[in-house]
């Protein structure tokens, strides 16, 4: 395997794996941050509580 092949594989792995993970991580941090700021209300069954 030439150096170029190896480099292109590394770049492919970074893009292919990192591409979807970065936005997922970002959303996970945001959602977790919001949950830390709140206390859940007591929830009762409503209307069409399937």
């Amino acid at each position: 395997m030439s150096f170029t092949d190896m480099l292109s594989n590394i770049v492919a792995v970074i893009i292919f794996i990192g591409g979807p993970i970065i936005p997922l991580l970002f959303i996970a941090f945001q959602v977790a941050g919001w949950h830390h700021q709140i206390t859940e209300p007591v929830m009762e069954e409503e209307g069409h509580g399937h």
């Binding site: 700021q37 709140i38 206390t39 209300p41 929830m43």
Partner: peptide
């Protein structure tokens, strides 16, 4: 949809 209206949470500071 009313079924997904949800409940308003309380901010931790005032809980």
């Amino acid at each position: 949809l009313p079924a997904y209206k949800g409940h308003t949470p309380t901010p931790v500071a005032s809980s």
